[in-house]
Simulated assay, not measured.
Amino acid sequence: MAAATMPENLADALAAHGLMARGGFVFDDDEAAPAGPSGAAAGAVVLVGHAGSTIWPHFSRWLADQPANLADPLDCWSRETIGAIAGRFTARAVFPFEKPFLPFQRWAMRAEGLKPSPLGILIHPEYGLWHAYRGALLFETQVAEARPHALSHACDACAEKPCLFVCPADAVSSVRHDHAACLAHLRSGRGGACMGGGCLARLACPVGAGWRYDDAQQTFHMRTFAGAPVDR
């Protein structure tokens, strides 16, 4: 498996919107790659995302000009922003929220060597749980470099594992993250602390604390997850 070489100037184009390339790879000859920009099978994929609150000022300014009833605004912003960048670099933009769903988590693990945390979020040795993948760029070319570096899994080195003991819905365990229990708690009226201040289990993780999302961004994500109206 070879890593994808990032096109020249792509990093600058992404950084202008608070985004960054989150690794990539060349598809193997014998795997069923999704279609690239021409409709033929893609040769390589580059993941696009962010760490910390780098996207928040850009998204917030964009959101202020949108209709108050706009559904899924962060997905809309991602589609508009990453789609425009894809056009500049002769790539096809794809997104984790679009059907038919593509294996974004497997792609991310393959591109960056990450593993899931007990919350289900991939944990990064520097960014901790404070990062996300907003889309990917599919290219037709198969330029290649060395394999991605293997990264240490922070959860394996964490002895206290505070994330397992603070969730008021008991949704976090070493076995799985109970998505339904988390959602039910947020919608029950008892999840005010999580809705207003962010996921308590996520905040308990000591890895990457300097990359924690801004309060406004945390509230936005929690309210969006719960299906509640988003304040502007």
Rank of each mutant, 00 (worst) to 15 (best):
A2W: 01
A2H: 13
T5N: 07
T5Q: 09
M6F: 04
M6S: 05
E8N: 12
D12H: 07
L19I: 13
M20T: 13
M20I: 02
M20P: 00
A21H: 03
G23T: 11
G24M: 05
F25G: 05
D28K: 09
D29K: 12
D30G: 00
D30Y: 03
A33N: 06
A35S: 14
A35L: 05
G36R: 04
G36F: 05
S38R: 04
A41C: 06
A41S: 15
V45S: 01
L47A: 14
A51H: 15
A51N: 10
F59T: 02
F59H: 12
S60G: 00
R61C: 11
R61Q: 15
R61G: 15
W62P: 08
W62G: 07
W62F: 13
D65Y: 01
D72P: 00
P73Q: 04
L74C: 05
C76S: 10
C76G: 05
S78L: 03
E80T: 15
I82Q: 03
I85L: 11
A86W: 03
F89S: 01
T90I: 02
A91P: 03
A91H: 06
R92K: 15
R92P: 01
A93S: 12
P96G: 09
K99D: 13
F101D: 01
F104C: 07
W107Y: 13
L114Y: 11
L114G: 04
S117V: 06
P118W: 05
P118Q: 07
I123C: 11
I123T: 13
Y127A: 15
G128E: 07
H131F: 10
L137W: 10
L137F: 11
E140W: 04
E140R: 06
T141W: 14
E145N: 11
E145F: 01
P148A: 08
A150Y: 02
S152F: 07
A154G: 04
A154E: 12
C155F: 11
D156C: 00
D156T: 10
A159C: 01
A159E: 15
A159T: 13
E160M: 01
C163F: 07
F165N: 14
F165P: 00
F165D: 15
V166Q: 00
S173F: 09
D178T: 04
H179E: 14
H179N: 12
A180I: 10
C182T: 05
L183S: 13
A184F: 01
H185A: 09
L186E: 03
L186H: 08
R190G: 12
R190I: 00
L203Y: 02
C205G: 08
V207N: 07
A209G: 14
G210M: 09
G210I: 12
A216R: 12
F220I: 06
R223H: 15
D231Q: 14
